[in-house]
Design a protein around this nucleic acid. Structure first.
Length: 792
RNA sequence: GGGCCUGUGGUCUAGCGGUAUGACGCCACCCUCACACGGUGGAGGUAAUGGGUUCGACUCCCAUCAGGCCCACCA
């Protein structure tokens, strides 16, 4: 008999033509369909580096979610987005041109960025295609489900529009903020560009006076030029030496400013003299401290890196000069007790290695501290998978103490859509267009306030998260197709990594709440990480990065996908990437192929079908798997159902049912009736069909091929199976499998072949209904009923 | 330094109050007509460590250790 599956085994070479076929017929989103919409806010990967193993795994899982939802009747929005904004692109451009972004004109620099983007690797897209990820489309466009770029005019226009809306709602304001500033590169830096080095620094012990008692105290500092910004002296609450100072007033040297002395755990007993002066020169932590204490910070360094009027006699000096000068002055006045050289962890510029200065600049802020309670409540309206991940979000929201700074001084990002009149009036353009104020004229010729025509465009851009946080709005056509958006938001699912909960997830929930008044996601699926085979995090510098293309080349995409499902639940645990285990997953594909090949050897049964108890048993088994899978897939758990299905395939179906039913299916000696033989074939194909459909979202290519040869139809357009009614049976799965195993073991222990005859099989009466199948399968001469026993 | 999460045979995983599930790998035997990418059998775990609650704990609580994620790095 010839099987409908001709090839002896499934090989990775079969994947190519199938994935090509998938590409020809993508699952386009059909706005006119009457189906319910299920939308996935996919995380746009960065284009400048090819996707790594983590992407391959998480997108494979997202694809399982998408394919499953389609099979249960949803129209799925599953777009591919490519992230092209921000620093990584600028870094690549700088590397390529050998020039820093402020060394060439803005226009020129953007051209280099665009060139970098043009040449950006298409390897990621190729990987997605090889993995058979079922995005709605691979073509760039502005329709629902189309491929989108985060730097497109369309996307950026929407980002700018949300700025205009939020500004008009009174939620955005401008304020002076301290920035990391590199004097070498002459630019502000993001925190991520700052590294720390141990550098020898002079630690100066300086005398402060106590106003009430005249006592002198000594405080150590590496930044004496900032004494003018000192607004508090603190000591550790446990520090016995200074308890008497609590509540007293200190006078700063030279400036004679009165400041409070307080106990605060931030002061360390062993560090310096145990007394610390708190200056508002520094970074966010200083700002936070001042806010906590209710003190207004004083900024003494201006944007050009020189001391301003707050610094008094130091005004106009550069920071280092100011430090020199004040040390001289302190020495003259006898206020400098001691100078020691210490190794100090100093923030330096990642590239030029210059010491970072902190200077104040005006930046836009989005109010968020007022919304903390709301954002905590909002989390209860979102389903977190796994639920434990919610805590990461809550912890972050609780720790927020300052508003969100949304403007940056870089080039390749969405421009802040603002113009400024010489009189200081801010001019907002109307919504709906993409604006580039640094090169475009203002939307109004004259300032509405003073009538002046001297209007300049703002040169700042947005923080990338200000862009990224509108992705669900963008893919659901917020403000572009209001009817559609109203009907189909909230977005069904946000899948993302655990490490960006405080950024991408929080900012999206927050900003989109401000804009729409609702939690934008229904479900949030948080994924953990793929580690290398030793359990270490993959990183370029460690050289342990596993390339998914290599894995696909070696084993194929299907084993990789199956491995993702079988390895564990990525929503609660990291995976170690082991080639051995991925290869092992491939064996299940072969097993599935061979079982299918066997089943598809028998012609479709004609005439009546009379199910035996054995058939009913295996039908119960597969149905309970179908039930379980339906329920758990909905909750993004593929691991447990697929593990169960895999076990069903290997053990229950292949080892037990198949072995027992073989004789009846062949029926060479006509020991069984035609109806019974039909039942065997019917049951086998029944199991195969359901099994393939449960596997289909996980391993779409092999299931597509088998189902096509089996039914001549596209399995991915079929409905996900439902369980049929359950049959009552006298024996359990364990009892049946135990009986088989006992017979096989008895033969083996006696050194006989498995085909050897059983002279007498004694078994409980509950197996009477499957007597004929047992007799045939185990070559039993005689059967008796009673205590179990095998005689050979 | 702070917060949160995790810790089950060599590797990975299930269950989550009654001494442990399955897979991969390993060893032995077997080419039985779908499959040697197979079959059968076997070795291998005092559940990170130490306490506590309980008649009883892998399962609950505390501490320690290790790993992960995020934040901070300041006199």
């Amino acid at each position: 008999m010839e099987s409908k599956l001709k090839d002896k085994a499934w090989t990775k070479e079969f994947e190519k033509p199938i994935s090509a076929e998938f590409l020809k017929n993508p699952f386009k989103f059909d706005k006119k369909s009457l189906k319910l919409v299920y939308s996935i806010d996919t995380p746009p990967p960065y284009v400048n580096t090819p996707i790594h193993m983590g992407h391959a795994a998480t997108y494979s899982l997202m694809d399982m979610f998408a394919r499953f939802r389609r099979m249960i009747g949803f129209d799925v929005i599953f777009p591919l987005g490519l992230d092209r904004n921000g620093l990584p692109i600028e870094m690549a451009a700088e590397k390529k041109s050998g020039k820093k972004f402020n060394e060439v004109s803005r226009e020129e620099f953007l051209k280099i960025c665009e060139k970098v983007l043009e040449e950006a690797s298409t390897e990621s897209v190729d990987s997605f295609q090889k993995l058979a990820i079922s995005f709605n489309s691979w073509k760039l466009g502005t329709g629902i489900g189309d491929l989108y770029h985060t730097d497109s005019a369309d996307y950026r226009a929407l980002t700018q529009e949300t700025f205009i809306d939020l500004y008009n709602k009174g939620l955005i304001y401008e304020d002076e903020r301290v920035n990391n500033y590199c004097p070498g590169c002459q630019t502000t830096l993001a925190d991520a560009e700052v590294i720390y080095e141990n550098k020898p620094t002079i630690f100066n012990d300086i005398i402060f006076k106590i106003k009430e008692t005249g006592e002198e105290i000594t405080i150590g500092t590496t930044r004496p030029e900032l004494i003018c910004t000192c607004r508090m002296v603190i000591f550790n609450p446990e520090d016995k030496r200074y308890q008497h100072l609590s509540g007293k007033t200190a006078l700063t040297p030279i400036f004679e400013k009165e400041i409070q002395i307080k106990a605060h755990p931030m002061a360390e007993i062993e560090k310096g003299t145990g007394l610390a002066m708190m200056c508002s020169a520094g970074d966010l932590s200083d700002i936070r401290f001042f806010r906590e204490m209710g003190i207004v910070p004083v900024i003494a360094i201006s944007a050009d890196g020189t001391m301003n009027s707050h610094a008094g006699f130091l005004e106009g000096l550069k920071v280092k000069e100011a430090r020199k000068k004040i040390i001289e002055t302190l020495k003259e006045k006898g206020l400098l007790v001691k100078q020691t050289q210490i190794n100090h962890r100093t923030p330096v510029c990642e590239r030029s290695k210059d010491e970072i200065e902190f200077i104040a600049m005006k930046e836009f802020y989005l109010k968020q501290t007022d919304f903390k309670d709301k954002m905590i409540q909002l989390a209860d309206k979102v389903n977190f998978y796994a639920p434990e991940s919610k805590q990461i979000y809550l912890d972050w929201v609780n720790s927020i103490s300052i508003d969100w700074p949304i403007s940056r001084r870089r080039y390749y990002a969405t421009e802040v859509p603002v113009w400024w009149c010489e009189c200081g009036e801010m001019i907002l353009p109307p919504k709906g267009k993409y604006y580039r104020p640094w090169k475009e004229p203002s939307p109004v010729k004259k300032c509405p306030k003073c009538g002046s025509a001297k209007i300049k465009g703002d040169e700042r851009v947005f923080d990338t998260w200000f862009d990224s946080s509108i992705s669900p709005l963008y893919i659901l056509k917020y403000s572009r197709d209001n009817e559609f958006f109203e009907k189909n938001s909230r977005c069904s699912l946000r899948p993302q990594g655990k490490e960006i909960i405080r950024t991408w997830l929080y900012y999206t929930l927050f900003k989109d709440y401000l804009l729409t008044g609702k939690p934008i996601f229904r479900d949030v699926w948080i994924n953990y990480h793929i580690l290398d085979d030793k359990g270490k995090k993959m990183s370029k510098s460690a050289g342990n990065v596993i390339d998914p293309q290599e894995i696909i080349k070696k084993f194929g995409a299907e084993p990789l996908r199956l491995w993702c499902a079988v390895e564990g639940n990525l929503d609660s645990t990291d995976f170690r990437c082991s080639e051995e285990r991925i290869e092992g997953a491939g064996k299940t594909l072969t097993k599935l192929w061979n079982v299918s090949r066997f089943i598809l050897m028998f012609p479709e049964p004609e005439g009546k079908v009379e199910l035996t108890a054995l058939d009913k048993w295996i039908i119960n088994e597969i149905n309970s798997i179908v039930n379980d899978a339906r329920a758990k897939f909905e909750k993004y758990d593929f691991h447990n159902p697929i593990t169960a299905l895999k076990n069903f395939l290997w053990e229950t179906l292949a080892s037990h049912y198949l072995e027992l039913v073989k004789g009846r299916a062949y029926n060479d000696n006509s020991k069984f009736s035609k109806e019974e033989q039909n039942a065997a074939v019917f049951t086998l194909t029944y199991c195969l069909e359901k099994m393939l459909k449960v596997f289909a979202p996980v391993i779409p290519m092999i299931s597509y091929k088998i189902y096509n040869d089996f039914k001549g139809k596209n399995i991915h357009l079929e409905e996900f199976p439902k369980a049929d009614k359950k049959y009552e049976l006298e024996f359990t799965r364990e009892e049946l499998m135990g009986l088989n195993s006992l017979i096989w073991k008895t033969k083996k222990d006696a050194g006989k072949s498995l085909k050897a005859e059983v002279i007498l099989l004694t078994m409980p009466e509950k197996f009477k209904s499957i007597e004929a199948d047992l007799k045939e399968a185990h070559s039993v001469k005689e059967i008796k009923y009673g205590e179990i026993g095998v005689k050979i």
